[in-house]
């Protein structure tokens, strides 16, 4: 840890003192705030930055994309089948947001974005999607080269964390794009009583099952076709949103999204695993509560 203590001993002085600090640091190569490193922002934790460096990438800056698309008045009135307008608006909002984040990735000369947080807001008249993440680019080593060898034809967007990106890439897999499927479906209107006649019976409501099951399958099929479009061979960490629409309870919202991945290495490489048993459980400290 002597390098660290030397570094701290020199901290807090003008740039001129950096030479002195640099010489104190064991490995030497000094640049007062390495070229191009200025003004970067990143919402990654230090661990994630270190892991990215270990696979040859470095963060560039926080990037985002916003899509806000109108939804025709009246589509939420109780009807039958899928609410196509809500679905179309969501997909358009997502692609608008993706387009926005891609432009920012281009502008910051990055190759993609990791740790994308997906915010989805639905209101009666609009569907809003906001994507926020950190763009990354290959880091240069001392010789000016980089050991990140994957060439992306277009910027990748991935909602996997930087940590997941690093772990996945060491196994030979790389993320391509954020893909999503959506379905908004009206519950069948026919009353339950009418369909079964007797309230005391245990019976499957097949028309209900069919309507909702179909909608879920449609959303998953849509996500799958997007994976094919972006050239992926798989999708990991699918997030499933499944809830009644807050302002129209008879409509069930079903969203499924995640990052399409593809194996770019010749074969899957298995990590060398060892099992560990953490022995650092939180120590219970003294607790006192009043007895009155």
């Amino acid at each position: 840890m002597s390098a660290a203590s030397e570094a701290f001993a020199g901290l807090g002085h003008e740039e001129a003192d950096l030479g002195q600090l640099g010489s104190a640091l064991a490995s030497g190569v000094l640049a007062p705030s390495v070229a191009g490193a200025g003004g970067l922002t990143s919402d990654l934790s230090l661990d994630e930055i270190l892991l990215l460096h270990s696979v040859g990438l470095e963060p560039v800056q926080v990037v985002f994309g916003v899509g806000a698309i109108s939804v025709l008045t009246g589509v939420w009135v109780w009807g039958t089948g899928l609410v196509a307008d809500a679905h179309d608006a969501f997909q358009q909002a997502l692609s608008t947001a993706k387009e926005g984040i891609r432009q920012q990735i281009h502008a910051s000369s990055a190759i993609g974005v990791v740790g994308v947080e997906v915010e989805i807001q639905l209101s009666p008249h609009r569907s809003v999607v906001v994507l926020t993440g950190t763009s990354v680019r290959p880091s240069r080593d001392e010789a000016g080269g980089s050991h990140f060898n994957v060439r992306y034809p277009s910027p990748f967007i991935c909602d996997l964390s930087a940590r997941d990106f690093a772990v996945l890439s060491t196994a030979g897999w790389y993320p391509l794009d954020l893909v999503a499927g959506a379905a908004y479906v009206h519950a069948p209107r026919r009353g339950v009583g009418a369909s079964i006649g007797q309230a005391a019976q245990n019976v499957e409501l097949t028309n209900f099952t069919e309507a909702l099951y179909d909608a879920r399958e449609a959303a998953m099929a849509e996500m799958q076709s997007q994976i094919s479009v972006v050239g992926g061979t798989g999708l990991l960490d699918a997030k499933v949103v499944d809830r009644p629409v807050s302002f129209a309870h008879h409509v069930v919202e079903f969203l499924v999204y995640g990052t399409a991945v593809k194996m770019l290495a010749p074969s899957h490489s298995h990590p060398n695993l060892s099992t560990v048993l953490p022995v650092d459980d939180k120590v219970r400290t003294f607790e006192a509560t009043s007895l009155d």
């Binding site: 998953m220 799958q224 960490d237 499933v240 695993l273």
Partner: peptide
């Protein structure tokens, strides 16, 4: 449902979808 048939057919071509996390995926492969 009929949509399931179409979706599953697509999956048979070798593409996969999964809600496993990256770590879980690697462990299942392992």
């Amino acid at each position: 449902p009929k949509d399931a048939a179409a979706r599953l057919e697509e999956l048979e071509s070798g593409m996969f979808t999964s809600d496993l996390s990256v770590n879980e995926f690697l462990l299942v492969k392992q």
